[in-house]
Amino acid sequence: MKNAVICLMVICCSFSVSAQKTKGKSREYKVWVELKNKDNIKGYLIQLKDSAIVIVENTRTEPLSVSIANIEELKFRRKGKIGLGMGIGAGAGLAAGAIVGFSSGDDEPGFFSMTAEDKAVISGILLLPVGAGIGALVGTGRSKYPIRGELNNYMKYRSELDKYILVKGTTHQ
Score class of each variant (00 low, 15 high):
residue 42 K to F: 04
residue 107 D to S: 10
residue 112 F to T: 12
residue 127 L to R: 11
residue 68 I to T: 06
residue 23 K to F: 09
residue 144 K to T: 09
residue 20 Q to H: 03
residue 51 S to Y: 09
residue 70 N to K: 15
residue 39 D to F: 12
residue 164 Y to Q: 04
residue 130 V to S: 07
residue 40 N to P: 00
residue 156 K to L: 10
residue 38 K to A: 10
residue 139 G to I: 01
residue 119 K to N: 10
residue 4 A to H: 14
residue 134 I to V: 09
residue 15 F to D: 11
residue 99 I to N: 04
residue 11 I to M: 14
residue 68 I to P: 02
residue 173 Q to H: 15
residue 11 I to D: 12
residue 62 E to A: 10
residue 89 G to D: 08
residue 39 D to H: 15
residue 58 N to Q: 12
residue 53 I to Y: 08
residue 47 Q to G: 03
residue 96 A to H: 00
residue 124 G to D: 06
residue 42 K to T: 09
residue 139 G to W: 00
residue 145 Y to V: 02
residue 83 G to Q: 05
residue 171 T to R: 09
residue 160 E to M: 05
residue 120 A to K: 09
residue 152 N to D: 04
residue 97 G to K: 03
residue 156 K to F: 10
residue 13 C to A: 14
residue 94 L to N: 13
residue 40 N to M: 03
residue 69 A to N: 09
residue 79 K to E: 15
residue 26 S to V: 07
residue 171 T to V: 10
residue 81 K to R: 07
residue 46 I to R: 04
residue 53 I to M: 07
residue 33 V to S: 07
residue 85 G to Y: 00
residue 173 Q to R: 15
residue 166 L to S: 09
residue 110 G to I: 05
residue 145 Y to A: 03
residue 38 K to F: 11
residue 138 V to K: 02
residue 22 T to N: 12
residue 50 D to M: 11
residue 91 G to V: 06
residue 94 L to H: 12
residue 73 E to N: 08
residue 98 A to K: 09
residue 25 K to V: 02
residue 4 A to Y: 15
residue 147 I to E: 01
residue 36 K to Y: 01
residue 52 A to C: 10
residue 126 L to A: 15
residue 98 A to T: 14
residue 85 G to S: 04
residue 82 I to L: 03
residue 104 S to T: 08
residue 70 N to L: 05
residue 166 L to V: 00
residue 5 V to H: 12
residue 8 L to D: 10
residue 22 T to E: 12
residue 137 L to W: 04
residue 39 D to A: 15
residue 98 A to G: 15
residue 62 E to Y: 07
residue 167 V to M: 08
residue 167 V to W: 06
residue 136 A to Q: 05
residue 160 E to I: 07
residue 164 Y to W: 05
residue 52 A to R: 14
residue 95 A to V: 10
residue 109 P to A: 01
residue 57 E to W: 01
residue 36 K to N: 03
residue 32 W to A: 04
residue 14 S to A: 14
residue 62 E to P: 00
residue 145 Y to P: 00
residue 87 G to N: 05
residue 80 G to F: 01
residue 170 T to D: 06
residue 145 Y to E: 02
residue 103 S to C: 13
residue 38 K to V: 04
residue 49 K to A: 03
